[in-house]
Lab assay of single mutants.
Amino acid sequence: MDSLVVLVLCLSCLLLLSLWRQSSGRGKLPPGPTPLPVIGNILQIGIKDISKSLTNLSKVYGPVFTLYFGLKPIVVLHGYEAVKEALIDLGEEFSGRGIFPLAERANRGFGIVFSNGKKWKEIRRFSLMTLRNFGMGKRSIEDRVQEEARCLVEELRKTKASPCDPTFILGCAPCNVICSIIFHKRFDYKDQQFLNLMEKLNENIKILSSPWIQICNNFSPIIDYFPGTHNKLLKNVAFMKSYILEKVKEHQESMDMNNPQDFIDCFLMKMEKEKHNQPSEFTIESLENTAVDLFGAGTETTSTTLRYALLLLLKHPEVTAKVQEEIERVIGRNRSPCMQDRSHMPYTDAVVHEVQRYIDLLPTSLPHAVTCDIKFRNYLIPKGTTILISLTSVLHDNKEFPNPEMFDPHHFLDEGGNFKKSKYFMPFSAGKRICVGEALAGMELFLFLTSILQNFNLKSLVDPKNLDTTPVVNGFASVPPFYQLCFIPV
């Protein structure tokens, strides 16, 4: 009986604490739906499609509103004006990374994606500088992407125009580009180590996009005490870190300090320079996690976009025909596509942009946080508050993009057929937390897609009208449904 009384008292205290925290903070924060004790607004949000729920709530509470995930307040920004004001106009104040408990377990605050403060700034600055020195957006990395595009075309030829699921092959190409940047090595598509790495990356994007992960991140005790797919994700990350550590040891034994070959060499050189400046942010643990982040951000996002792009091109054969006509006119058949071609191919450029806009790969991006107490639109948001960005509300804005739910390359073309930029184009987020590999991803999408369409016609196994382009999961990332196609050599 005594234990029951204690339990009831504990629960009562928890409920009172929950109510007090919510009521004391709500006077400062933007308005929002009334949260339930302990669980907050979790029942009012469709976990399978958070973005749709945010759109519905914005119609009631406006472009800036507050939700509670458990006891934790989260300020939501919906629509271009609110997102721009926060991420661009007040970029420094909104540059923090929001709480992501599962990532905390995986990387302990290291790396480039989930770190904060001085650690994040130094690692991000170093990573950007190193990638630029190796030619991100310049010639040397373009050579690597072109080489991988040629290998991709050869792998597709091996399908002999038979029906195939493109998931694996389209994942190999961007993964190999990242391998060449980090390890100075590309792998054969049949290499077992490479296959294991690909498998872990593919599993992780599916797990991260599941409703279960949303629950884990908002009720963090689940991570330590409950079984579930989150444990598989943590094991996959541990596998990748151990693999990278092996490569780091190989580099330490063979590195030429006067001739760095890749990202690992550059990081080890930085560690050597910083060894007298303790404590340094440049450690082996930081290198492991930064490399894992580059793999995660640079492989599955690009391969998922490529997979979605081919599905949309199957669905819209008239678009595919126009792209192939432009390829034939500008590039021809006797040389590989290059980035200089893009400025002469406005329709193809528009298609690449429209694919990214339409699929809305990361509907709410990753959570941000404010780095200080900030007054925002007459609300006071306390330091450390998590900020949720609705990228969907920007990419699918119906004023900027008429009929935003329709796939239409003319969203990025003017009346004369010239490519038209849009400030609403934010597939990689915006501001200080914009994806480090934005330029690389854009290069890969253009070169891989043009190389495929230069060499193959795409054949659907069903009537294009019957192809479903609805994402199968739409949590962290929008993942396309399973499909097969035939690559018919031109």
Rank of each mutant, 00 (worst) to 15 (best):
K119N: 12
M129F: 08
Q214K: 11
S286A: 14
S23T: 13
E104G: 13
I359R: 04
I207Q: 06
Q22S: 11
P33W: 00
P402A: 11
E281F: 13
K383D: 03
R342S: 05
S209T: 15
I141F: 13
S343D: 14
L87Q: 06
I123A: 08
A321D: 13
K118D: 13
K275T: 13
M129Y: 09
Y189S: 04
R335V: 05
D49A: 06
Y347S: 00
P367A: 06
S3E: 12
G96E: 15
I264S: 05
L43D: 04
A173M: 01
F295W: 11
H78Q: 08
I74E: 00
E85V: 05
F94W: 12
M136Q: 14
E274Q: 14
N259G: 12
L128I: 14
A297V: 10
E199S: 09
C372P: 00
Y308E: 05
M339Q: 06
G117I: 02
V83I: 14
K315S: 04
K28R: 12
Q261F: 04
L440M: 08
F295M: 12
P174M: 11
Q192E: 12
L54S: 03
S24Y: 09
N259L: 08
P489V: 00
G431P: 04
F456S: 01
N116Y: 03
P101S: 14
K119A: 10
I244S: 02
L312Y: 01
S180P: 01
N56M: 10
H251E: 02
L77R: 00
I213V: 14
S343P: 05
F94E: 06
L306Q: 01
L445V: 10
D463S: 09
F263T: 04
N398S: 14
P227R: 05
P481V: 02
Y80H: 05
Q22I: 11
F110T: 13
P346V: 05
I169T: 09
M406P: 05
A161L: 04
T385H: 03
H344P: 02
L54V: 12
V292T: 11
E272Q: 13
G91W: 04
I178E: 01
M345A: 02
T167M: 05
K235R: 14
N116V: 05
D188P: 09
N418V: 08
F187I: 02
V472L: 13
L391M: 11
L11T: 15
V490G: 05
D341Q: 02
R342Q: 07
Y379E: 01
R139M: 12
I99M: 13
N204G: 06
F114I: 07
F487W: 04
L9W: 09
D397T: 04
G32Y: 00
I88S: 08
L152I: 06
V113R: 15
L67G: 01
Q192P: 13
D408T: 09
P101G: 13
N41C: 03
T66V: 03
P402G: 09
L388A: 06
K190P: 04
F65M: 12
N202I: 10
M339V: 11
Y61P: 00
I213C: 13
V177L: 06
K28S: 13
S242K: 14
G475L: 10
L314K: 00
I359P: 00
T392M: 05
P260L: 06
T167H: 13
I50V: 12
F183M: 15
L11I: 08
N289S: 11
P317T: 09
K315P: 00
K138V: 12
D2V: 13
K421T: 12
T385V: 04
E250R: 08
D165F: 00
K322G: 10
S162N: 11
D256S: 11
A441P: 02
F482N: 15
T392Q: 09
D143R: 07
N231E: 03
L447A: 04
Q356I: 11
S127K: 02
Y225G: 07
E81P: 08
V75D: 00
I215V: 12
V394P: 11
S254Y: 09
V472D: 05
I327N: 01
M269L: 12
V330G: 03
P227Y: 07
L395W: 08
R26D: 09
L54K: 01
I264G: 04
T130I: 08
L268G: 04
N455L: 03
E246R: 09
F412P: 00
I74K: 03
L14H: 00
K249C: 10
E104P: 09
L310H: 03
R132C: 04
L9V: 13
P174T: 15
T34N: 15
P260G: 10
L14F: 11
K459E: 09
T364L: 15
P489M: 00
L87V: 07
A149L: 01
L362S: 04
L11Q: 01
W20R: 08
H251F: 03
V177D: 00
Q484V: 03
P464D: 05
S162A: 10
Q214M: 11
L445A: 07
G137H: 15
R333V: 15
L361S: 09
L71Q: 10
A173H: 01
A297M: 10
V490H: 12
Q340G: 08
L29R: 08
N202L: 07
V472Y: 08
R357T: 01
M269S: 15
I181L: 14
F219W: 14
K72L: 02
I327Y: 00
F295Y: 04
R108E: 11
L413E: 00
C338D: 06
L458H: 00
G25L: 11
R157T: 08
E250K: 08
H396Q: 13
M255E: 07
P409T: 04
E300N: 14
V330K: 11
A441E: 04
E285Q: 07
L395S: 11
Y189A: 03
D143L: 11
Y424K: 14
G70I: 02
M345R: 00
S478H: 09
K119V: 08
F376E: 01
S336E: 07
T450W: 00
L197W: 04
G298H: 07
V5R: 01
E155L: 04
F239V: 13
F126S: 05
L71H: 07
S336R: 11
N56G: 13
G27R: 10
I141R: 01
L102K: 08
F114Q: 13
I264V: 10
A350P: 01
I42R: 05
Y61D: 00
K375L: 07
W20C: 05
L306N: 00
C172I: 07
I45R: 02
